[in-house]
Amino acid sequence: MIDITLTVNGEEMTGRAESRMLASDFLRDVLGLTGTHVGCEHGVCGACTIRLNGTTARSCLLFAAQLEGAEIVTVEGLGSPRKMHSIQEAFRRHHALQCGFCTPGFLMTVAEILETETLETDAEIREALSGNLCRCTGYEHIVRAVRDLVNERDGVAA
């Protein structure tokens, strides 16, 4: 077993894991942060996306042992039901989730691309979101939510 000390959502945490334990399972089963969802477990669906030292990463393609000393942000670090993050508010406003399984991954990806991408067109939004799959196929509403957030960010009237 390996002892791991890391910062999650601004709070220092410790846990123990076998070397083969995936970071996604460590966050959920050891640290009890079940907001990070596990979909495909081979890096295709994006449901387990977290921020690792500032940038998004698939937590199913990381081992827990690799989180030693890392700064992690999970969906729990974005907002809470009483005080939602503006991205969560936009998803709620635009009905950008149906079953909600893919939503944590989408939220984490959107948080990054709003910082790093211009997203001038809906085609650019779709391309930036192409690493996250929604099996309910609710993409239209997700794109609308992101368009709203981009307009807000850029000071453009919708």
């Binding site: 996306t49 998004t56 698939r58 990381l62 691309i113 790093t116 996250n132």
Partner: peptide, 9 residues
């Protein structure tokens, strides 16, 4: 090359 999160890593 793949998607944002994969390019990061």
């Amino acid at each position: 090359v793949a998607h944002v999160a994969i390019r990061n890593r």
